[in-house]
Amino acid sequence: MSHTMQFQLSRNSFGRLVLESAEHGRHEGVVPVRAFPVAAPDKGIALVSTDGHEVGWIDELSALNATTRALVEQELASREFMPELLQLVSVSSFATPSTWQVRTDRGPTELILKGEEDIRRIGREGLLVLDSHGVQFLIRDLAQLDRHSRRLLDRFL
C-alpha cells in the first residue's frame, strides 16, 4: 500500500518550498526530512510544516515526477550536512581533545574531537564523528578507509 499523498510542490521567491494538498491545504516553508538518513536515504521522506507537523509523505524519491523530485533534492541538499569522512590526514594527538585534519566528500577541513564518546557506532561498519561545533562526520564503512586512516582511528575506538 502506498502512502504517497497527492500534493503539489513549488518554490516561492523567498526560496521556501510551498506545498498544496487537498488533505492539508497550503503550507509555506515545508522541509523534507529523511526517515532513514543512513540506512535508506532515498526511501521514506516526510514533508514537515513549519510548526513541526507532517503534511506530506514520499515513499520513494524515484517515484516522483522530475520537477518535484528536483525541488525535494535541492532542498535536501541545502539542509543536509553530514560530510563523509574519506581520509584522516593527521591528528594532533591521541588524547582528546584532538584536532583532526581530514578529507571529506565536501572538501578538506579540520575538526576538533572533544572526547572519544563523540565517536558513535552506527550499525556494524558505520561510525559517526561529532565535532566540537556539532557537525556530524559520517564514516559509512570503516573497512573502506585506507590503512593510515584506520590506524589513526583505531587509537580512538
Binding site: F14, S78, F81
Partner: peptide
Amino acid sequence: AGVASLELFDAAA
C-alpha cells in the same frame, strides 16, 4: 544539524 544559514530578504524575495 550543525549548519547555519543566513539569508538576506527584501519585501519580495
